[in-house]
Simulated scan of single mutants.
Amino acid sequence: MDINTVLEKIPPALIPVVIYFPFTIGLFAITNFFIKYTRLLLDLFVLPGTNLRRYGKKGTWAVITGASDGLGKEYAIQLAQKGFNLLLVSRTASKLETLSTDIKQKHGGSNIDVKILAMDFSKNEEGDYAKLKALVDGLDVGILVNNVGQSHSIPVPFIQTPKEEMRDIIAINCIATLRVTQIVAPGMVQRKRGLILTMGSFGGWLPTPLLATYSGSKAFLQQWSTSLGGELAGTGVDVELCLSYLVTTAMSKVRKTSMLIPSPRNFVKAVLGKIGRSGGAQNMAYTSTPFAGHALMQWWLENTIGIGSAFVVKKNKDMHEGIRKRALRKAEREAKKA
């Protein structure tokens, strides 16, 4: 059947619709694509984030969990440089003491007050949370950085995951984040200002075989943080989940930086400079992907291949199977040397 025969069977009034509707839809899709991409570039390279002074004057406190190493340490240093007093919470007291001294001498000056609390979140002990609450209740906290986290020692199939590792990941990534936020957030709501910044992960955004428990824990934080953001909207308390791909930290076990893998310093600088900007996370409320390399990767994946597809899950699985094989071979070599 040729096109003329088809058109003869269509009422004349509908012919323009039949001819131009597909063109209109295509034009709309292309226009929307470029509008979203322009918004991404503006977020990453032009528009500033929220001024952190919105969350308190000089001397306001920032609470940082997982503060002794990696991203937590860098958040502490950069927030001190911006004039925030610090309550640093992490497992190892000696590292916290060293960081506190370093911040006072090199980064914040004598005007910065630093308190520390050694706390192992994997233990989930009531006494530790009581000590944290006692400290927080006397402070004007303007920023909470939920940074503490744990992944698997190496990629591992779920059915082979050690029960202790599985328990610790949930206790640290999920329970600790919820309990600390319940301690800090009420004061923020009462003062009508504050920022609750929680570290998410591409592992929670993309289903990640061989990191199933970690991936699920970070996906949980995504949904929880977005829900909390909706609850606290209008209170003056901002909620943001920050997504990241790899950063050169002990958790990632990556040492060399690249366009896609920043140092903790550059990553945290991007986060604190883009609060309130979605970056690559345009389709997720109360969420940001502020580092440019991560954001561009996320945006193109979402708008071309799509996430959660069988293809993406398979590629993720293949990558982590390779990482696991290399880690096991390395452990075997080291065992022979011992």
Rank of each mutant, 00 (worst) to 15 (best):
S215P: 06
V18A: 12
G56I: 04
Y245C: 02
I154D: 11
T213G: 03
G127E: 10
F311Q: 12
R277C: 10
I112Y: 09
G127M: 11
S258T: 12
S110L: 09
T65M: 04
A295D: 04
G59D: 02
K58Y: 15
R91A: 05
A62V: 01
D318K: 15
Q222H: 15
E97G: 10
K36W: 15
G280E: 00
G322Y: 00
I154A: 11
G59E: 01
M199H: 10
G279D: 11
D128N: 08
I30G: 03
A67W: 06
G142W: 03
M1L: 13
G279W: 08
G200M: 08
F291T: 01
E164P: 09
A93D: 13
Y20E: 01
K115R: 12
F121S: 00
N173K: 07
M319W: 14
L260R: 10
N4A: 13
D128W: 02
T65G: 08
L206E: 11
R333E: 10
F28S: 11
L211V: 08
S258C: 06
P262Q: 02
P207I: 06
Y20M: 07
P290H: 04
V18M: 12
M251A: 13
Q223E: 05
Y286T: 00
R324S: 06
Y129S: 04
V63T: 05
S94H: 06
S288C: 09
G138T: 03
T98R: 14
T287A: 14
K58H: 15
H107W: 15
P155C: 07
I305Q: 10
I261V: 15
T249E: 12
T181R: 03
A338I: 12
S100C: 07
R265S: 13
G49S: 05
M1A: 14
A250R: 09
S122F: 04
V17I: 15
G149F: 07
I35P: 00
L210Q: 06
R53S: 13
H320G: 07
D69W: 02
S100T: 13
F291C: 01
P264T: 04
N85L: 02
L71C: 04
G142S: 09
L241N: 09
T38V: 05
T60K: 02
T226W: 07
L86R: 00
L42I: 13
S263W: 02
A310R: 15
K115N: 11
G204K: 11
S252T: 12
P48D: 01
T181W: 02
R265F: 00
Q81Y: 03
I35N: 05
M119I: 01
V136Y: 08
G276V: 07
C242A: 14
Y129H: 03
A219L: 12
F158S: 07
A130G: 08
S278N: 04
A67H: 09
T249N: 09
K274L: 08
I175R: 10
T181Y: 01
T208W: 02
R191Q: 09
E164N: 13
M259C: 03
G200F: 03
G216K: 10
V247S: 05
I116T: 15
A171P: 00
D128S: 12
K9Y: 04
P290F: 01
I103R: 02
R193V: 05
C242W: 03
